[in-house]
Design a protein around this nucleic acid. Structure first.
Lengths: 112, 112
DNA sequence: TAATAATACCTAAGCAAATTAGGTATTCCG
DNA sequence: CGGAATACCTAATTTGCTTAGGTATTATTA
C-alpha cells in the first residue's frame, strides 16, 4: 500500500474545511496552503483537486468567480449556502471517523 | 461521496493494529471486533477484508494456522516478525496522518 | 420443524476517487 | 536564456473499496 492511500476519501472534507476557514480560495492556493499547514507532509495533487472542484461546483456546493492577476487567471471558489451545510456535515463525518480510529488505536493493551 | 469513503486506505493499518493488540485473530472475528470497538459506526466488509488478508499473507506480513470449531473452520492470522515492523510503520503513518488532518481542522479562525 | 439468522470462509464484477503523466500559458529568478 | 514557480486543465490508469453473490455448518425462533 502506498502511504498516500490514506488520503483517499479525505480530500473533499479537506477542501470544504479550507474554504470554510479561509473564505474564497483558488485551486493552486489550496494545494499550497495544505502543504504549508502540514509542513509538506500532506500534498493534494492537482489531478485530484481540479476534477473535485468541478464536481462540487456542478453539484451547487461551490461557486466561482474568475479574476485576472498579471494576465494569469485565478478561479476563486467559495461555499454556497448549501455548501456551508455540506461542510458542516463533512467535518462532522471526518471527526467521528477519527474518533473511531482512535478507539481502535488507543485501546488498552490486552494480555496476549 | 459515500460516507464510508473515508475508510479507504485505513483498512490495512486497522487490521495490523488489531492483530498487534489481540495476537492471533480470524477474519470474521476481526469484522465483529471492529464493529464492537466503534459501536457499530465502522464496519469492515468481508469483500475487502479477505483479499487484504490474503495479500498480506502472500507478502509475508501475516502467517496462518487453521483450526476446527464444531466442523466450522477458523483461519487464524498473526503478525510475522516483519509484520510487527510493518504494523509499527503503518500505525505511525496513520498517527501522523491524523495529526495532519487536525492541523487542517483545528486551525484558528481567521478573519474573513 | 422449517425457515432464518449467525458463524465462517471465499470470489468476481463494478465503481469511485485517487495517481500518473501529460498539456497550455505566463511570470519570476539566476 | 532556461528553468522554476504560478495557474489552469484533462485523460488513462491504478487502487481499494462496495456490491453481490457463492458454500457450509450451527443456533435461534416462529
Amino acid at each position: 500500500m502506498r502511504p498516500s492511500a490514506l488520503l483517499k476519501g479525505c480530500l473533499e472534507p479537506i477542501v470544504l474545511q479550507m474554504l470554510k476557514e479561509h473564505g474564497r480560495m483558488y485551486g493552486y492556493q489550496l494545494t499550497q496552503q495544505v502543504k504549508e499547514l502540514t509542513k509538506g507532509e500532506l500534498s493534494i495533487t492537482e489531478g485530484a483537486l481540479y476534477p473535485l472542484l468541478h464536481r462540487l461546483e456542478a453539484a451547487g456546493v461551490l461557486e466561482t468567480t474568475v479574476e485576472q492577476m498579471d494576465n494569469r487567471m485565478r478561479k476563486y471558489y467559495s461555499l454556497t449556502r448549501s455548501g456551508k451545510k455540506q461542510a458542516e456535515l463533512s467535518q462532522h463525518a471526518l471527526t467521528t471517523f477519527i474518533e473511531n480510529l482512535q478507539s481502535i488505536f488507543h485501546q488498552p493493551k490486552t494480555a496476549s
